[in-house]
Structures are given as C-alpha cells and as structure tokens.
C-alpha cells in the first residue's frame, strides 16, 4: 500500500529520541518548553502528557490519513483534519484520565488542553506523513519523539533549577536569554549522537 522506508523499529525509536530530537534538532514545541521548564514538577507533568498525546495522535492520524484522506483524495484538507483529530484526542484523553485517575488529572491540570496548540504534536504528524512511515513505524516514531521531548524538558528543568539562582548572569540575559543559550548547548551535546544512528 505504501512504500515505507526500511528502518528498524528500535533504531527509529532511538533516533527519534537522540539524533533527531523533535526539540533540539527540529525546534518543535519551543514556546511551552521555555515557559514551563521553570518548574520541575510541571515539566514532568507536561512531558508525560506530550508523550501520550503524540503517541496516540500519530497512530490515529496515520489511520485517518490512509483510510480517509487518501481514498477520498482530500490531501489539501489534511492540515485542518489533523488539527481536529489532535483536539479530539486531547479532549478524549482528558475525559478518560479524569474518569480513571483523578490524581493524574489534577497533576496534569491545564497542560492537557494546551497541548492542542503545541507544534511538536502537529510537527511529528507532518513528518510521519512526509516520510511515509507504515503503521508500526508511525507509532514508534510518535512515542519516541514524545519521549525525546520529555527527556529534553527534564534535562533543561534540572539545569534551570541551579541556573536561575545564579546571580552572575548579565541583567539583559536573565530568564529567557540564558535559557536559550542553555538549550543551544544541549542541542550541541545532542549533535554528538548523530554519528551513532544515521536514520532520518
């Protein structure tokens, strides 16, 4: 049905976490990344939520893409359809979590609805469409990318815990400025992984 790239699932998973990290290599989801990473606990909550949402939406969107959009020939509407699917999945996930685990629901709080406009989610789905992944690849790529985002935000939140207390930072760079520089260094560190797994 589709000529999926021949990529092993394990290497795809590792590649989406390390070598082509959605945040550090593709700049996706930077806005919420910078504002939320101030707080360690919130970062944890958002990281879990993003991983779940990206994993589930990439599976659902794969099915929608190959069973609805392609047969009907309405590729030009795919952006709108993907956005609606993401909003729907987020809403459903919110209701399910609220029903079965009120404590997790409280912990995730406002982060769930915010994910609808997180560019990492739509970005992963568009990559999945462009690279023509098959179903298992799409799911692995989705969860891997989410986990990569989660890893990145936890790392940054830990660094910022120490950094924000540091008074040696110049006044003009405080807050966002120094955070961006820190992300730059993290991105450089992750570039070091690129020789290990050469999978796009």
């Amino acid at each position: 049905m589709i000529d999926a790239p021949s990529v092993g699932l394990v290497s795809l998973f590792l590649a989406s976490i390390l070598t082509s990290n959605v945040l550090l290599a593709n700049f996706l989801g930077t806005c919420s990344f910078i504002s939320i990473s101030k707080d360690f606990r919130s970062s944890m909550g958002l990281g879990i939520a993003v991983t779940m949402v990206i994993g589930i939406t990439s599976a659902v969107c794969w099915a929608v893409l190959y069973f609805v959009i392609k047969p009907l020939g309405i590729e030009y509407l795919s952006f709108i359809i993907f956005i609606i699917v993401i909003a729907g999945v987020v809403q459903m996930l919110e209701m399910i979590i609220d029903r079965f685990s009120p404590s997790l629901y409280m912990a995730l709080g406002i982060f769930l609805p915010l994910i609808t406009v997180n560019c990492a989610v739509l970005g992963v789905i568009l990559f999945m469409q462009i690279r023509k992944y098959n179903f298992p690849q799409a799911v692995v790529f989705g969860f891997g990318s989410g986990a990569g985002w989660w890893l990145a935000i936890m790392l940054l939140a830990s660094i910022r815990k120490k950094l924000d207390a540091n008074t040696a930072v110049p006044a003009g760079l405080k807050g966002t400025g120094i955070t961006l520089i820190t992300i730059g260094f993290m991105a450089m560190a992750f570039v070091g992984f690129s020789g290990m797994i050469a999978v796009q």
Binding site: A25, N26, F27, T176, L180, G184, A187
Partner: peptide, 9 residues
C-alpha cells in the same frame, strides 16, 4: 540547530 538558539539569545 544550536546556532539558532545562540543567535536568538
């Protein structure tokens, strides 16, 4: 990628 973060900062 890293240079973009540095330049925005």
């Amino acid at each position: 990628a890293p240079s973009a973060f540095f330049l925005v900062a």
